[in-house]
């Protein structure tokens, strides 16, 4: 159902996000919280969010071109997008991920 909705409304394909954080610092947990909240509240649980600790899975960072931490990567739909920072500003996250329309549709 989500796939059908997405194909009708702008971005194609399912929404897949990956959040890279560095360890369990305060900034990391804060970021994870805010992204989780965003996914649940604004995206209605449609997004597929994966949290990666770069200390644990170093090899993934190179593949996704991660430089800064924390970084939120929109893996799909393509093209990939990257957001660096602790993602405290919801509006900017959505803009950055190009999901304003997505949210509007699913409100």
């Amino acid at each position: 159902m989500s796939a059908a909705a997405a194909s009708e409304n702008g971005p194609a394909g399912p929404l897949r996000l990956r959040l890279y954080v560095a360890g369990t610092s305060l900034r990391s947990t804060r970021t994870i919280d805010s992204v989780r909240r965003l996914c649940e509240q604004r995206l209605g649980g449609l997004g597929d969010l994966e949290v990666v600790d770069i200390y644990q899975q170093s090899q993934l960072a190179g593949g996704d071109g991660v430089v800064a931490a924390p970084t939120l990567v929109r893996l799909s739909p393509l093209p990939a997008r990257r957001l660096a920072g602790d993602l405290s500003d919801e509006r900017r996250i959505l803009e950055g991920l190009g999901l304003q329309d997505f949210v509007r549709e699913h409100r």
Binding site: Y20, A22, R27, I54, A61, V66, V67, A68, A69, P70, T71, P79, A80, R81, R82, L83, A84, G85, D86, L87, S88, D89, R92, I93, E95, G96
Partner: peptide
């Protein structure tokens, strides 16, 4: 390709 939102470092 990179948006900045808030604090970050280059740990990556």
């Amino acid at each position: 390709e990179i948006e900045e939102t808030g604090e970050y470092d280059l740990e990556g």
